[in-house]
Design a protein around this nucleic acid. Structure first.
Length: 719
DNA sequence: ATCACCCGGGG
DNA sequence: GTGTACGGGTGAT
């Protein structure tokens, strides 16, 4: 038996555990009240106890903050729907409140030493939460997809369903109501444990529910009546960017997993299952969270197990930024400006999980940095000289150490156990994202266990480590071409020895990530200085590595990506710097071919689509740009774009101030649509410049070269 | 020139 | 219920 899923219904204060027993899956229900904690006197306790929605109160010994001695606090079990009411009332009285916004499901799991996907024997758990090898229940999985009946123009929820596919069953050519009923029947009879969709949260499920409601039918994909999410989708911030979060469509007793969501994409089913076990977040819910939430869950769980209460923080952060970006943003960042141009035989060496390793090795945690118990500690942070606790190991290192080890074990198994390499790759990958996020979290002043001094300390250690590594490399005769955060690009002999020496001295593994036959560091287009994250090169295994240029961006049209890719493909044939220079004319030939095609109107419209994320509402834009023109077009068709949604357009007349002439949304484009060939040609020239700028090919020069050829073409063809 | 607005990871 | 960095690019004013 396995704990497939667990949900909480605040209205009835009921926990529902879905227990999978062989092929069957049954709900087990139990009334449960979440518990909150308040610092206060017996008088306050009697006041709280007298409130109608308070079920039970007593005093407990708890620590109110990491590293603090336990003290007596009021513990109160409350009607779930009244938690915030009581909390706000007590907060207004100046009370300190704890464990306010903990998910009741996770409280319940912790109290009962349970976790998602745990193996059970009767009522008893027969599994170990952090085990690396554990039994996975046999889950019946089905794929669900829905296609609207129309494939041209703007498709909306008003268009009837054309086809429903449930794994091998295709439902089509029928009355719509009958199709939905048939889907209900098929799901019920196949009784899967999992329903996978490509983008079920943002498309399939809301669409199906909407169509069903028009026919007064109830769509039921879960093992019980589906509970529709109450609030609509919302926009939210993430690393300075607004994303659109569609409301989720979880199912009762059955897991709906939307494959377009980050954690599923990165970890697959088994990676997600692994993470659900260790974080205690049910899979279905976890699949819709960010890695930052998973890290917080691990920290909160550890704190609660240690008898530490969690302060009430209303602000939950979404973290996306990589350690690299954050560190560059930081003042103390160590960045060596890359030497612009072509370099032969270059090694890239990286520290593995540098920041998490620093936190573990140097005991960095909110309660250990500048701790009160060791003011004279011999352990100091470089540059800032903050003291670090020598008596206790902090919460953060205690959470991260097993996480790093778990990931290392999985990484090792990728090679040791080739038959399951893919599975271990997914598992280590999802953990990598937790580790990356764990650092970003520190810098966020509102994170539960974040503290800016910890963030500073980590970057300070990082900076010292990279500086020291550069000294070692320099001492061994290496030339340093570029360095950023946890990576160095060097030229020299025997890089393995460098890695070995530095790893030993620093105590964090420095790995040889690869050898480049050649690499080109690109300049900043505005000032010519080395750009930190724009380069391309070919490794000795023949693989091309590209960063920062157009083809890496999600908003670049296919045409530009294909052109840059083809140019780099020509250059990548070069094995040496000498051959590289010989290949440049061929790369320029690629540009010529593409510009010619663009000017001859021979490009497919589908290759010309720009895609960007909308960051604000239609009326909040101050500038009239291509994106706004596209939004206006959509609005005219009756569709409002929400912040965070993606918008697509083809440029038809870039200089026009008229939103209908300037761009064309692909849904409205047809064979008569004529693109702005001059503008696309300009984009091609710029993308070529990005690649060849260090060799003297500016956009202007390339433009002239192309024109020269065009004129010759005119002569050749006698026009 | 200055301001507005977008993207960024890995394999 | 809620807010945040910066470098690099293109484009508008």
């Amino acid at each position: 038996m396995f704990l497939l899923d667990i949900r909480y219904d605040p209205k009835s204060a009921t926990i529902t555990k879905w227990i999978k027993d062989g092929k069957a899956c049954k709900p087990v229900r139990e009334v449960y009240y979440p518990r909150i904690y308040i610092s206060g006197t017996p008088e306050l306790q009697s006041l709280i106890a007298s409130l109608p929605y308070v079920k039970d109160t007593h005093f407990e010994e708890k620590s109110t903050w990491l590293g603090k001695e336990p003290e007596k606090v009021i513990s109160a079990a409350i009607e779930p729907n009244s938690v915030y009411e009581l909390a706000s009332m007590l907060e207004a009285k100046g009370c300190q409140l704890y464990n306010i916004d903990l998910d009741p499901v996770r409280q319940y799991l912790l109290e009962h030493s349970l976790f998602p996907m745990a193996r059970l024997r009767g009522d008893v758990i027969d599994d170990s939460q952090y085990a690396l090898d554990y039994e996975v229940p046999e889950l019946v999985s089905m794929e669900l997809s829905v296609t609207p009946g129309r494939d041209k123009g703007i498709i909306t929820m008003d268009d009837p369903i054309g086809r429903i596919t449930l794994s091998n069953t295709v439902i089509e050519h029928k009355d719509e109501a009958e199709m939905i009923n048939e889907l209900n029947r098929e799901v019920a009879s196949a009784d899967p444990d999992l329903i996978m969709t490509e983008r079920g949260d943002s498309f399939e499920l809301p669409y199906l529910h909407h169509r069903a409601s028009l026919h007064d039918i109830e769509l039921q994909l879960g093992r019980e009546k589906d509970i529709l999410p109450e609030s609509g989708g919302k926009s939210y911030f993430s690393y300075g960017r607004i994303l659109y979060k569609p409301r989720g469509y979880p199912l009762a007793g059955r897991l709906h997993l939307d494959k377009s969501i980050f954690l599923i994409r990165e970890g697959g089913l088994l990676g997600l299952l692994d993470l659900a076990r260790i974080t205690g977040i049910p899979m279905q819910e976890l699949s819709r969270l960010s890695p930052g939430s998973a890290v917080t869950a691990l920290q909160v769980n550890q704190a609660l197990r240690d008898g530490v209460l969690v302060p009430w923080k209303r602000n939950l952060a979404e973290f996306w930024k990589t350690a690299e970006e954050l560190l560059i943003a930081d003042r103390g960042a160590l960045v060596i400006e890359p030497k612009v141009g072509l370099h032969e035989n270059v090694f890239e060496i990286d520290f593995a999980s540098l920041f998490p390793n620093i936190m573990v090795k140097h005991n960095i945690s909110p309660e250990t940095v500048l701790c009160g118990c060791c003011p004279d500690s011999g352990k100091r942070v470089p540059f800032t000289h903050y003291n670090i606790c020598q008596q206790h190991i902090g919460l953060i290192p205690r959470v991260l150490k097993p996480l790093i080890e778990r990931r290392m074990t999985y990484k090792k198994r990728i090679n040791d156990c080739p038959s399951r390499a893919e599975e271990y790759e997914m598992k280590q990958n999802i953990l990598k994202w937790l580790l990356v996020t764990s650092f970003g979290y520190m810098g966020f002043n509102k994170a539960r266990f974040g503290r800016i001094e910890c963030h500073e300390s980590i970057t300070a250690f990082g900076r010292e480590i990279l500086l020291r590594t550069m000294e070692i490399a320099d001492g061994m005769g290496f030339e340093i071409l570029h360095g950023i955060v946890d990576s160095l690009w060097v030229k020299g002999r025997e890089p393995e020895k460098l890695c070995e020496l530095a790893s030993r001295e620093i105590g964090i593994p420095l790995e040889l990530k690869g050898e480049f036959r050649w690499i080109v560091f690109l300049p900043n287009k505005s000032n010519g200085a080395g750009a930190l994250n724009r380069y391309y090169g070919v490794m000795t295994n023949g693989k091309l590595k590209v960063r920062g240029i157009e083809m890496r961006r999600s908003d670049t049209p296919r045409l530009i990506i294909n052109m840059q890719d083809a140019m780099l493909g020509k250059l990548a044939e070069a094995k040496t710097a000498y051959e590289f220079y010989q290949k440049i004319p061929e790369a320029i030939g690629v540009l010529r071919e593409y510009t010619q095609k663009v000017m001859d109107y021979k490009c497919a419209l589908s290759d010309l689509i720009f895609k960007t994320h909308v960051s604000r509402g239609h009326d909040d834009y101050r500038q009239f740009n291509n994106q706004l023109a596209a939004m206006k077009q959509l609005r005219q068709e009756g569709i409002d774009t929400q912040p965070g949604q993606t918008i697509s357009y083809i440029i038809t007349d870039h200089k026009s101030r008229n939103y209908q002439k300037r761009v064309m949304i692909p849904e409205l484009a047809d064979e008569n649509t004529q693109y702005d060939r001059e503008k696309y040609r300009e984009h091609l020239l710029r993308a070529a410049e990005s690649v060849l700028l260090p060799f003297g090919y500016t956009e202007e020069r390339l433009d002239e070269m192309m024109r020269g050829r065009l004129q010759r073409n005119l002569c050749v063809y006698g026009i």
